[in-house]
Computed example of a mutant assay.
Amino acid sequence: MSAETIEDTKNYTIEWDDDIGAVVFTWDEYVSGQTFRDACEALLDAIKRKNASKSLTDTRGVNAHDAEDQEWLQNDWMPRALDVGLEYSAVVHPDSVISEMDVENMMDGVEPSGAKPLLTSDMNEAREWIADK
């Protein structure tokens, strides 16, 4: 994997992965509220700077997001991400039913213009899917 680190904090890492042509965002710790939103804004900034149409988000390091953060992501952040050109997103969640439901709830009603987001617990599947877009 040839990845360029864009930002590396204790809560998350943002990279550009040439192999799949996508911004890769990895949650390292659970955060909520303004800290969650600031991290998402950093991801949006990376998408803009790289003129990226694809992102892969690895949430295996966290188990859930609170309802307010989910609502903000759906109603505020995602429309802005689509406006700057994000078309495809893959989300890798922890291998648990609760985590899968959390990610599904977060993505519910979000239809990027290019395709429905991929939700999976398999990083290889996510990388292959996003690389093909």
Rank of each mutant, 00 (worst) to 15 (best):
D8W: 12
E15P: 06
W16H: 05
F25Y: 07
T26N: 04
W27G: 02
D28T: 14
E29H: 11
E29Y: 06
S32M: 06
Q34D: 13
Q34F: 15
F36V: 05
R37H: 06
A39T: 04
E41V: 13
A42M: 11
L44R: 10
D45Q: 13
K48D: 09
K48F: 09
R49T: 11
N51V: 09
A52K: 03
T59P: 09
R60C: 05
A64C: 15
A64R: 15
A64V: 15
A67N: 15
E68M: 14
E68S: 14
D69Y: 07
Q70P: 04
E71P: 11
W77Q: 07
P79E: 07
V84E: 03
V84F: 05
L86R: 08
E87L: 10
Y88A: 00
S89E: 14
S89I: 10
V91T: 01
V91C: 00
V91M: 02
V92C: 01
H93V: 08
P94Q: 12
V97Q: 14
V97Y: 15
V97F: 13
I98W: 15
E100C: 10
E104Y: 04
K116M: 04
K116T: 02
L118H: 00
L119V: 06
D122A: 03
M123I: 09
N124K: 10
A126D: 03
R127K: 06
